[in-house]
Design a protein around this nucleic acid. Structure first.
Lengths: 227, 227
DNA sequence: TCCGTACCGTACCGTTCGGTACGGTGTCAA
DNA sequence: TTGACACCGTACCGAACGGTACGGTACGGA
């Protein structure tokens, strides 16, 4: 049920969670408009009539392209994820300790910036709202698409640090999850609840917070940390 | 529209959270039924007609007691929070190191158990879904009621540990947030997205994970940690 | 006994929304 | 010119929902 990588076009199958990429430019315009509506007004703001009006398209086209309203929501997540397709490679070369630390901090700041961005928050709220509904795979889709990119970039960074002798750990996944917890804490949930989180307000505040988190991370996983 | 707080007494909390309405037993029955609907079917499952049917009450009573549908949702959060009214005091006496560590682990396990519970997940999903809507204070309400209880218990525990010489830190809030991040990581979000999180499946898995997290916490904030 | 109160169950209304149908327009190819 | 195609805009339908009104019932106090 999870493996349908490249479908030539999204056909008339309306049952499962079908569609992957391969959106036409016109469809991407529509999805962009849908994202705008979502960011501004939440899920209830995405009505078929409202989206058609906002995107200057017909409802008939919506149903032709996306099957039904849920198909539009799924397509929005797939589309947004395809946009964020991160360059995962990163610096493979050996880097001195302070530069490597700056890489880690850069990762942390990027992570916080993404999580606190309005589009990300809106999509996460959408997926969480749909998660209670049975048979909705939006959550899985979001996790698979979004988290994977972050996770792979972080793990590459961590293993590079290990090879370079800056870090020491056995379980890459565990180290990544600890790093995530130290950086994000409960900010993501609080942001989604609409709370005002100071550490995500300005670049300066984010940098300060991330620096402290990376400090803690090095005390747990640094090469000179006592086991 | 917002000020109908005829709070008889019970003004224990000093912060801004306003409402302390005491619900009658009948109203609590209705709210319990509403929670059941919410847990099972998400926010869309709470319709005025459906709730009236499930709770064997009339729609007229719903509107009399709670004002409108949003009032029902707010009352659900207030009611659930009032149920969880935690015994915050905890052991004030000095405790030896290993017992104190067990206290911390107990806190962590309780925290994970609460966050992964179906009622908590459903309420958080509800509040997050409403957060996009302007003028909705459900998120604030949930944070104020739920988070505050956890936070105060944890801070009491941490400061007791500091006085007993088990911990060393300056910023209690910062230490608590680090502890929270080490324990919860991104599990809360993933649970709300409907994902299957192994570390919250069994008591054993939770205990193992929390023990590791407390290990890390002591390496950062233990009295014998290098600064 | 009578009346007020609180409540239940049902019927009802106006609106919104998902989904479908249809006519009209621009384009490209034969 | 003709026809096929993709699309837009609008009108329409049925269902669901929030909210209100009304009749009927139990109870407790004067």
């Amino acid at each position: 049920m999870d493996h349908h990588d490249h479908s030539p076009f999204d056909g008339a199958d309306t049952d499962g969670a079908p569609l992957d990429e391969a959106f036409t430019p016109r469809q991407e315009e529509v999805l962009e408009a849908a994202l705008g509506l979502l960011v501004e007004g939440g899920e209830r703001a995405i009505t078929t009539a409202g989206l058609a009006r906002a995107a200057n398209c017909s409802k008939e086209s919506l149903y032709k392209w996306f099957g039904d309203r849920d198909g539009v929501l799924a397509a929005m997540i797939a589309y947004q994820a395809s946009k964020v397709r991160v360059a995962v490679g990163g610096p493979a070369a050996q880097r001195p300790a302070d530069t490597y630390r700056a890489d880690l901090e850069g990762f942390g700041i990027d992570l916080l910036a993404v999580l606190s961005g309005p589009a990300s928050l809106a999509l996460n709220r959408l997926a969480i709202g749909q998660a209670s509904r049975e048979g909705s795979r939006l959550g899985d889709l979001l996790v698979a698409r979004g988290r994977r990119a972050v996770s792979s970039r972080a793990k590459g960074l961590l293993e590079a640090g290990k090879r370079a002798g800056h870090l020491r750990f056995e379980d890459t996944q565990g180290a990544f999850e600890t790093l995530y917890g130290l950086i994000v804490r409960d900010m993501h949930v609080r942001l989604m609840l609409g709370e005002h989180v100071p550490a995500t307000n300005t670049d300066r505040a984010m940098a300060t917070h991330v620096a402290a988190a990376i400090d803690q991370f090095f005390r747990l996983y640094g090469a000179d940390a006592q086991s």
